[in-house]
């Protein structure tokens, strides 16, 4: 059990602004997985997602004074930083060059699934294989979506962010979020059914 578990993000931020690394450490513990998942969904790479997580927290720590709790929560502010970092990595010349000269995805470790249906109850081998196929088909379809659609859909369906929060993270209007999520759902259903 952490010492700061009962404190809210806002309380931790106030203490961290006062110079407490330990309080910021609790924020790191709370949000690392979330930032990793968002970064991974955008970059499609485990290593790059890890880099994004480190850079995002470092930026957040350095700019903690600029965080305005009246405009957004720490979570949405952090996700905004992580999304920008991820997009920068994806569009960087270095990455494009690496992709061109080698098939970067070959070295990717197989995805570990958070709510892995395979581990929840004993299933026969055939069902396990079928579920695994479904998961991979879904993952493959997700990768084919444009970044904005994928991010909006995953922030809603996996991270349970509200439409308002997604709008803040992606710096777009709520109606654009609605539209992106709807189009993402239509497209992914088409891709999976093919």
């Amino acid at each position: 059990m952490g010492r700061f578990e009962d404190l809210s993000d806002q309380e931790l931020i106030i203490a961290a602004r006062g110079g407490s690394e330990h309080h910021f450490g609790e924020l790191v513990d709370r949000h690392t997985t979330l930032v990793y998942r968002v970064a991974r969904s955008i970059t499609g790479s485990h290593e790059e997602a890890e880099d994004v997580v480190q850079e995002s927290f470092l930026r957040a720590f350095k700019n903690l004074d600029k965080f305005d709790g009246s405009k957004s929560t720490f979570k949405t502010w952090l996700l905004t930083i992580a999304r920008t970092q991820s997009i920068n990595i994806v569009s960087s010349f270095r990455r494009k060059a690496l992709k061109f000269f080698s098939d970067h995805d070959e070295d990717e470790p197989e995805l570990e699934f958070a709510s892995n249906p395979l581990s929840q109850e004993p299933l026969d081998a055939e069902t396990q294989l079928s579920l695994k196929r479904q998961c991979h088909a879904m993952d493959k379809a997700l990768k084919k979506l444009p970044e904005r659609q994928r991010t909006a859909l995953l922030l809603r369906s996996q991270e349970s962010l509200s439409y308002d929060e997604i709008a803040i993270v992606m710096d777009i209007s709520v109606s654009s979020v609605e539209s992106l999520i709807f189009r993402a759902r239509k497209k992914i259903i088409e891709l999976v059914e093919r």
């Binding site: 690392t32 997985t33 990793y36 998942r37 991974r40 969904s41 995805l111 570990e112 699934f113 958070a114 709510s115 892995n116 249906p117 579920l131 479904q134 998961c135 879904m138 993952d139 997700l142 859909l153 995953l154 369906s157 996996q158």
Partner: peptide, 10 residues
């Protein structure tokens, strides 16, 4: 299904 393809950190 999307909830099941949530990558996790080991």
């Amino acid at each position: 299904a999307l909830a099941n393809v949530k990558p996790s950190l080991a």
